[in-house]
């Protein structure tokens, strides 16, 4: 039984399932370092997922789907930024508001755009194709890294790119300063607001890619509230890692693999209700050390 659970197949599925979490956790980590504990990842992702299908369906191109997903999620995150940074809304209430807004708007748009209710599925919509990495594809175990679509690879690359951006470049320094001493930026005569918006842009793009992966990464379909709490698991990954990008990425991948294991268990006849709990229980377990550190328990 164990070899079925911990097979290469599980690993491949897990890496795929981890991708939307990874993108969201990366965006969330940057936000968190910049002083915005963003819980609207879920909402941005859902909007991205919807417009991913829209783009792919109307332009007959999955790339157009990805671009539209990113654009829509970016628009949502900029709106979030406007409320947060300039209208000084409370970030938790604003986040909840955005998440509910995302569920409502995508659910409502389903009918006028696709003429259906609850969900939309059309096998003719092109989805992102799997890409094999030449040599890696031949090596046992390591071949799990091959055969994913472009967004999965992009996710892994983003870990490195965003890490370098945040910790090694001048704009990254400013973004991190935002979360610790905003005045350090303004006393040097620079606009803290500009960098705060830059942060919201990054999270918008990340969540857009996460959404696109969900809706056109494998099966092309959109169902109401299809993100199903993944944005909040990403928030947990951010909390667990202390918003440190490499740790947040690791946490996302662990969540993804746990999810894949859960699916395998389901196949083996374990009760669904129990299996479905696994990723969420894992979330709580992973947050325990962080909670302990802050003496909340």
């Amino acid at each position: 039984m164990l070899d079925i659970i911990f097979s290469e197949h599980t690993l491949i599925t897990g890496l795929g399932l981890a991708t939307p979490l990874l993108f969201c956790a990366l965006g969330g980590s940057i936000c968190s370092k910049a002083g915005n504990f963003n819980i609207a990842l879920e909402g941005f992702m859902l909007i991205g997922a919807f417009f991913g299908v829209v783009g792919s369906y109307f332009f007959k191109s999955p790339l157009a789907g990805v671009l539209l997903a990113v654009a829509a999620s970016l628009a949502a995150s900029m709106l979030y930024g406007l409320f947060l940074l300039q209208f000084k809304a409370h970030e938790v209430i604003l986040g909840f508001g955005f998440n509910m807004f995302a569920i409502a708007i995508t659910g409502w748009l389903l009918e006028p755009v696709f003429g259906g209710k609850g969900s939309f599925y059309d096998p003719s919509i092109p989805s992102l194709k799997a890409i094999d990495i030449p040599v890696v594809g031949q090596i046992p175990v390591l071949r799990c890294l091959s055969g994913h679509n472009i967004l999965v690879y992009l996710g892994w690359a983003s870990v490195i790119v965003l890490y370098l951006l945040l910790y090694k470049t001048a704009p990254g320094y400013k973004m991190r300063a935002l979360g610790e001493n905003k005045d350090a930026i303004s006393t040097n005569g620079l606009s803290a607001l500009k960098y705060a918006y830059l942060v919201e842009m990054l999270v918008g793009v990340c969540c857009g890619l996460a959404g696109a992966y969900l809706s056109i990464g494998g099966l092309t379909m959109f169902t109401e509230n299809m993100t199903a709490g993944r944005g909040f698991i990403a928030v947990a990954a951010v909390g667990f890692s202390g918003a440190y990008i490499p740790l947040a990425a690791l946490a996302s991948i662990v969540f993804g693999i746990a999810n894949a294991v859960a699916i395998q268990l389901q196949g083996l006849g374990m009760p669904t209700q129990f299996v479905d709990m696994i990723p969420y229980i894992l979330t709580i377990l992973m947050l325990l050390p962080e909670m302990y550190k802050h003496k909340k328990i």
Binding site: Y173, R176, A177, E180, N181, D183, A184, T187, N188
Partner: peptide
Amino acid sequence: MVHQHFMLVPSF
């Protein structure tokens, strides 16, 4: 200007 409240970033 050296401000009364330092304009430094603690984790840097």
